[in-house]
Write a protein that binds this DNA or RNA. Structure first.
Length: 496
RNA sequence: GGGGUGCUAGCUCAGUAGGUAGAGCAGCUGACUUUUAAUCAGCCGGUCACAGGUUCAAUUCCUGUGCACCCCA
C-alpha cells in the first residue's frame, strides 16, 4: 500500500473516519473558562495535592504538541490566549489518549480537567477528558516563525490573527479606540445615526465615487464619499448633535494610506463653531492616548510624537512660510508669482485653479509631512472649502481647520456654511469648474439647498479618519495593517 | 502612471558565476509519563509564480505577464 504523503489528504481521511463514527461536528461542548482569564486569575496561585482541585472546561485550537509516549503536552489557544494541557495515558484511559494522538495541529477541541502547575512553573490543566469539536483539514503555518508573507496575511487574515500576537493586538486596540470614541461622543450628548451609503448625487467631499445601479428604480447610485450633507439635514431636523462612524468609499488609488473603503467619524454640533471642535478634537485624542493606549508619548515608525501639553495651532499660510523660509508671503498672494512658484516646486496646476487652490497644493507638498506632533492648521481658502462658512473678517478664508499627526491628515472640520444662497452660488462655481473639465468638482445638490433654505442653525462639523488614527496609535506603517480585509487585486489563475 | 524588490516544499528560508534543488519546522514510522522551537532514529514531500527567448542544457541569463511589498508622481 502506498504511503499517504499529502497532509490534507491525511486529515480528510481522519474526517471520513469521524463521519463513520457519526457526529463529526458536535456542538454540545460548553466551556466554563478562558485561557487568558485563567492565566490572570491563577498567576500567583500555588496548587498542592491535598487542596480541592479546581476543575475547568476550556476549548480552543490546538497550536503545539509534544508527545512523549504515555504523556503529552499541548497548548490550546482561544480568544483570550493560550493554556497548556497535560495528558497522561493512565488518567485518560487508552482509547481517549489514542484518539488525542490522532488530533492534528489546528484542530479545535474541548478539554476538561484540574488546574496545576508543572515542574517549570507553567499553569496547566491535567486533562480528564478531551474531545475533537472541529477537524481542521489544512495545516497551520509554522509555529516558530509564524506567518510573515504579507500577501497571505491580508488575503487569509484568519491565519494572521491565529499566528501573530501583534496582529491580534492591533485589531483589539482598534475596537477599543472605536468603543472609546463612541462613548466619548455619547457622553457629550451626541446622537449616533446611520445615513445612506447609496447616494443619488455624490457629495460632501471632493472625490471620485463608485457607481452602482438600482434595478427596480432604474437609476444609478453612488457609494457615498462622505455622509456630510445627510448629517446636516439631520441638524436642520432638530437633531442638534449627531455623529456617524461608518465607511466612505472613494474610487481612487490604493496605497499604504488609502483603502477604497475607509472608516470615518463625522459629527455635527449646532450652536458651535470650528474653535469648539478644535478643543473637542484635542480632548478626544488626548483621552484616547490616556485611556486606551495609556501613554501621552508615542513612537510612530521611529518618530517620537508628544500628545501632552496644548496642541499647536496655526494658520496655513504661516505654516508654509515657517517650513519654507525661501518662500515669501508676497508670492503666495500674487497670481503670477504663485503659479511660477508652483511650477518651480513641480506642482501641476490646472487652468481653473485660483490662488487658494494653489496655496493648498503648496501646503500639501511642502508642509503636511513635517507636521509630526499633533497640529491644527486653520485659514484654508474658501476656494478649496465649498461647504465651509466664510470668515467674517477675511471673506476669501473659511472658518476651517485640519488636524495632522505624523505628517498625516487625521481630521477636517469647519463652521458650516448655513447661508443657503451662498451655498447655491458655491455649488454653481463647482458646476462651472466641472463644465470646464475639472472632474473632481462637486455636483449641484438642490435637495441639500432646499434643506438649508429651511434653516440650518449655526453649526460646526468635522470628520476624523479612524483608520489613520488607529495607524498612529498602534504604530502601524500601512492602512492594510489596521483594516481586517484590505482590498487587493484578484488572484488570477495561471495563464493557459 | 514611473522606478525598485520579491515569488523555491504546508510555513520560514538557503542555493545554483546555466548541468532538474537543500535545511529547520510541519507531516509519516518508531522510542520516550513534566515538555514548552521537547529529544532521538528513520522516511516522505518541489510545474523553483506563469509564458516566451537565448542555449546541447534555464529554477538560474534575457523579454513579457501576473500577484505582492516599498518609493516617487
Amino acid at each position: 500500500m502506498s504511503e499517504q504523503v499529502d497532509q490534507i489528504a491525511l486529515r480528510r481521511n481522519k474526517l471520513a473516519q469521524l463521519r463513520q463514527g457519526g457526529k463529526p461536528f458536535p456542538n454540545d461542548f460548553r466551556r466554563d473558562a478562558y485561557a487568558g482569564d485563567l492565566q490572570n486569575q491563577y498567576a500567583d496561585t500555588e496548587f498542592s495535592e491535598n487542596q480541592v482541585p479546581i476543575h475547568v472546561k476550556v476549548s480552543g485550537r490546538l497550536m503545539t504538541r509534544r508527545l512523549m509516549g504515555k504523556a503529552s503536552f499541548t497548548h490550546i489557544q482561544d480568544s483570550t490566549g493560550q493554556i497548556q494541557l497535560f495528558l497522561q495515558k493512565d488518567q485518560l484511559g487508552e482509547s481517549i489518549y489514542d484518539e488525542f494522538k490522532n488530533f492534528d495541529i489546528g484542530d479545535i477541541l474541548g478539554a476538561e480537567g484540574d488546574l496545576f502547575r508543572t515542574r517549570t512553573g507553567e499553569l496547566s490543566i491535567r486533562v480528564k477528558n478531551i474531545r475533537l469539536l472541529t477537524k481542521a483539514l489544512r495545516p497551520l503555518p509554522e509555529k516558530y516563525h509564524g506567518l510573515t508573507d504579507p500577501e497571505i496575511r491580508y488575503r487569509q487574515r484568519y491565519l494572521d490573527l491565529l499566528m501573530n500576537d501583534t496582529t491580534r493586538s492591533v485589531f483589539l486596540t482598534r475596537a477599543a479606540i472605536i468603543q472609546h470614541i463612541r462613548e466619548f461622543m455619547i457622553s457629550h450628548r451626541y446622537l449616533e445615526v446611520e445615513t445612506p451609503m447609496m447616494h443619488p448625487i455624490p457629495g460632501g467631499a471632493v472625490a471620485r465615487p463608485f457607481i452602482t445601479h438600482h434595478n427596480t428604480l432604474n437609476m444609478d447610485l453612488y457609494l457615498r464619499v462622505a455622509p456630510e450633507l445627510y448629517l446636516k439635514k439631520l441638524v436642520v431636523g432638530g437633531f442638534e448633535r449627531v455623529f456617524e462612524i461608518n465607511r466612505n468609499f472613494r474610487n481612487e488609488g490604493i496605497s499604504t494610506r488609502h483603502n477604497p473603503e475607509f472608516t470615518m467619524m463625522e459629527f455635527y454640533c449646532a450652536y458651535a463653531d470650528y474653535h469648539d471642535f478644535i478643543d473637542l478634537t484635542e480632548e478626544l485624542v488626548k483621552s484616547l492616548c490616556q485611556k486606551v493606549i495609556g501613554r501621552e508619548q508615542l513612537n510612530y515608525q521611529g518618530q517620537e510624537i508628544d500628545f501632552s501639553g496644548k496642541f499647536e495651532c496655526y494658520d496655513m499660510l504661516q505654516s508654509i512660510l515657517r517650513f519654507n523660509p525661501d518662500i515669501s508671503r508676497k508670492d503666495l498672494h500674487d497670481e503670477r508669482a504663485i503659479r511660477e512658484l508652483a511650477n518651480h516646486l513641480q506642482i501641476q496646476v490646472g487652468s481653473t485653479d485660483g490662488i487658494g487652490k494653489i496655496q493648498m497644493e503648496i501646503f500639501e507638498k511642502k508642509v503636511e509631512q513635517k507636521l509630526i506632533n499633533p497640529t491644527f492648521i486653520t485659514g484654508y481658502p474658501v476656494e478649496v472649502s465649498p461647504l465651509s462658512r466664510r470668515n467674517d473678517k477675511q471673506p476669501d478664508i473659511s472658518d476651517r481647520f485640519e488636524f495632522f499627526i505624523a505628517g498625516r491628515e487625521i481630521a477636517n472640520g469647519f463652521s458650516e456654511l448655513n447661508d443657503a444662497e451662498d451655498q447655491a452660488e458655491r455649488f454653481q462655481e463647482q458646476v462651472n469648474k466641472k463644465d470646464a473639465g475639472d472632474h473632481e468638482a462637486m455636483h449641484f445638490d438642490a435637495d441639500y439647498i432646499c434643506a438649508l433654505e429651511h434653516g440650518l442653525p449655526p453649526t460646526a462639523g468635522e470628520g476624523i479618519g479612524i483608520d489613520r488614527l488607529v495607524m498612529i496609535l498602534t504604530d502601524s506603517p500601512s492602512i492594510r495593517d489596521v483594516v481586517l480585509f484590505p482590498h487587493l487585486r484578484h488572484q488570477q489563475p495561471p495563464a493557459e
